[in-house]
């Protein structure tokens, strides 16, 4: 099984971290993984995206051209990456910031109000973790426990108090995806 993932949004939404957590969790599970960011001026406040591959096989190209799943956190990302989802693949849309519906009917689309849920949790910055929770629940690509372990490594011991919040965000993301049905 190979998960080929694109995550996109604007700078500051924690796009890169989402990808790194997925890759790290995949590695902890013993999978082959790669994480490839977009880099350059667009990192400074513009759009950001990264490609993640989690696979039982060694990763050949780290570039995702036919994604098994795409997560878009803002409107320009939907416009840019909807076409990259492979037929039958998964598209997760942050409906809090994207008022548009996806146009394809050969893929599965879930609308996640990631920012609204994050706000309910008291911290809008965990919108990325809500989205990640939805993705993991939907695909089973990695286990949530490994994502949390990866987050511990990424945040360091000084930020331990954020862990509970992030766990909650993953859980809420997973819950809201239950209602998501194939179009």
């Amino acid at each position: 099984m190979t998960h080929q993932i694109i995550i996109a949004g604007f700078g500051g939404q924690g796009i890169m971290l989402m990808g790194q957590l997925l890759a790290y969790a995949g590695m902890l599970e013993g999978k082959n993984v790669s994480w490839l960011p977009s880099y350059g001026p667009e990192m400074r406040g513009g759009t950001a995206n990264c490609n993640v591959i989690i696979s039982d096989e060694p990763v050949a190209s780290p570039i995702v051209t036919e994604a098994t799943a795409v997560m878009v956190m803002n409107r320009p990302s939907l416009d840019r990456f909807e076409g990259a989802v492979m037929r039958g693949g998964l598209l997760l849309v942050n409906s809090s910031l994207i008022d548009k519906k996806a146009s394809r009917d050969d893929i599965e689309v879930c609308y996640i109000p990631a920012n609204e849920i994050a706000d309910q949790l008291g911290n809008s910055r965990v919108a990325n973790m809500v989205m990640l929770g939805s993705y993991i629940a939907k695909t089973g690509a990695v286990s949530p426990a490994f994502v949390i372990e990866s987050l511990r490594k990424a945040l360091g011991p000084s930020k331990e108090h954020f862990i509970t919040l992030n766990e909650e965000a993953l859980k809420r993301g997973a819950e809201c995806v239950k209602e998501c049905v194939r179009r």
Binding site: Q20, A23, M27, N32, V33, S34, W35, L36, P37, Y39, V59, P62, I63
Partner: peptide, 10 residues
């Protein structure tokens, strides 16, 4: 190349 420098792998 830039890709190898920027990407992450185990």
């Amino acid at each position: 190349d830039g890709m190898l420098g920027q990407m992450m792998e185990p």
